[in-house]
């Protein structure tokens, strides 16, 4: 069983895990960080998106062992204490969710999108969220949320 050491939400963690452990299983079952969701099991829905070394990836499509030494941020790690991340605040105020299941992945994906480009067109936002599937909202308020957050984040 390999030993995996990584930084998760700023804290150093070390665990012995089976070789075939997916990052999402490591986060949810070993770390108890259940904010990262499993929506599809086929690598399509994006509910499991987290940041690895600042980039968004699907945590269901990578082994935890591949990320030995990596810096991982989950939805639990983006707020500043009680103060929500601007992307979370924008989703809250623009009602960018209905059931909320896809929201952690949407927020993590959108943060990277906006950090790379703060002047996104609506089309660029829609294309940028291609890897995230929402079955409730029709995406309209999600796009509004990301536009709002881009302004809050300095766009």
């Amino acid at each position: 069983m390999p030993t995996v050491a990584m930084k998760v939400n700023g804290a150093n963690v070390v665990h012995d895990i089976p070789d075939n452990t997916l990052l999402v299983s490591f986060l949810r079952e070993t770390m108890g960080l259940t904010g990262t969701h499993v929506g599809c099991d086929t690598s399509q829905c994006g509910a499991c998106i987290v940041h690895v070394n600042g980039e968004s990836i699907k945590s269901c499509s990578i082994l935890a062992a591949q990320l030995d030494g990596a810096d991982v941020t989950t939805i639990e790690g983006i707020a500043n204490g009680d103060e929500l991340h601007p992307m979370q605040q924008a989703f809250h105020e623009n009602h960018g969710l209905q059931c909320g299941f896809c929201t952690p992945g949407m927020v993590m994906s959108a943060i990277e999108l906006v950090e790379k480009n703060k002047n996104l067109s609506e089309r660029e936002i829609r294309e940028g969220l291609e890897g995230n599937i929402c079955r409730c909202t029709g995406y309209h308020n999600i796009v509004k949320s990301v536009q709002d957050a881009a302004t809050r984040m300095g766009g």
């Binding site: 994006g46 998106i49 968004s56 699907k58 994906s109 890897g131």
Partner: peptide
């Protein structure tokens, strides 16, 4: 290709 997360890996 794929989506942003796929392109990141």
């Amino acid at each position: 290709i794929g989506d942003r997360q796929v392109r990141n890996r």
